[in-house]
Simulated assay, not measured.
Amino acid sequence: MDAQGYFHTFPAVRGTQAGRPFFIAMCPLKLVPRLFVFDEEEVPPEMRAQRTLNRARIPEIAEYLVTHPESYVLSALTASVNGEVNFQSIDDLRQPSLGLLQIPMDASILINDGQHRRAAIEEAIKQRPEVGQDNVPVLFFMDEGLHRSQQMFADLNKYAVRPSYSLSTLYDHRDAGSDLARFLAVNCLTFKGLTEMEKSTISNRSTKLFTLSGIKHASRALLKKHQKQEITTEEKLLAKEYWEAVSEHIPDWTKARTKEVSTAELRQDYVHAHGVTLHALGIAGAALLTTQPKAWRSKLKALRSIDWSRSNVELWEGRAMHHGRISKANTSVQLSANLIKQALGVKLSPEDAAFEAQHDA
């Protein structure tokens, strides 16, 4: 803010897109809640330039900022300024694009992209005021009316693609479950060399048998761990031991590793080559480890008695399959886990029994 108090002043870089000027500026986080406004939710959609605020997302983002004050990363906000701005270049000859951006204090600055980050910043500052001293980059455009603002929102989100769950797992070093999945993919003989690290689905021609995200879901279920719970070294080693023991009794997994059979053939012919079964084996394993902490390894021999063939419609239809297609639904996972539990001699819980009653109805 300048000495006269009429402007908000930001260090900025000036650029041009599609013949229109824009500015990239650094804004202190503590000013974000006061400077940037958001379309009120009560306004009809056709009169807004944004989606409505999903308040369920705000605590998670705010917690991320508060919990990781020394390592968080916050992407730029995009805003439109409804008012005349002034850009003062530092050096008109040598650095004409570097300077100070002055925005009138009575101008409206409307968020085009980043409304949840803006709300989360406000909440994070309430919990941890020192966060307000940090900065966030802001991309400023000139407001050209509702039509242009709506088109900006559509264009900014049209090509946005979320990374696959496997890739997020591979790159997430804050999450204990992701760390467990990476550990198993590299160190567990069952998964080593057979894990798709980037995609959460496996193509027909892929030589991989498991996805990193599938390993994460199944192993967290095995250890009965929720998303934010820590996982000890001993638990990691137990998961490794369990999955290697399981593979001893599913010979097709070993054949896939030794290239005696193609993974494409296994996916086509057997339910054990799909994530629903891996997850189910994790759930069944958790029950087995609880009820048979000493004898669980020998109990796994019963896996050899299960007919994993997709052609066994009587066994798998309504469980791992629906109308002949593999199902990833939670109900399919649970019902498949029930079948495996029964094969292993594990008594079904009341919740399990309720699922079975619905399946038999």
Rank of each mutant, 00 (worst) to 15 (best):
M1W: 00
F10R: 15
V13W: 02
V13E: 05
F22H: 14
F23D: 03
F23C: 14
L35D: 02
E42A: 11
E46C: 05
R55Y: 02
R57T: 04
I58E: 06
E60H: 10
E63I: 00
Y64G: 07
L65Y: 03
N82G: 15
E84M: 07
I90A: 08
Q95M: 13
L98S: 12
L101I: 10
I103C: 08
D106Q: 10
S108C: 12
L110R: 10
Q115E: 05
A119V: 05
E122F: 02
E130Q: 14
D134M: 11
V136A: 04
L139W: 03
D143K: 13
H147W: 10
Q151Y: 05
D155M: 09
A160Q: 09
D172K: 09
D175W: 01
L184D: 00
E196I: 11
M197Q: 06
K199Q: 09
S200W: 01
I202C: 14
R205H: 12
R205Y: 03
S206M: 09
T207M: 13
K208S: 11
I215Q: 07
A221H: 06
K225E: 01
Q229F: 02
E230R: 12
E234R: 11
Y242F: 15
H249E: 07
I250E: 00
W253T: 04
T254K: 13
K255E: 06
A256V: 10
A256E: 10
T258I: 06
A264S: 15
R267T: 13
G275Q: 06
H279G: 03
I283N: 10
Q292D: 07
K294Y: 04
A295W: 01
K299S: 04
L300H: 04
K301L: 07
A302N: 06
L303P: 12
L303F: 00
L303E: 01
R304D: 02
R304I: 10
R310W: 03
S311L: 08
N312V: 10
N338R: 09
P350E: 02
P350F: 02
E356N: 08
H359N: 08
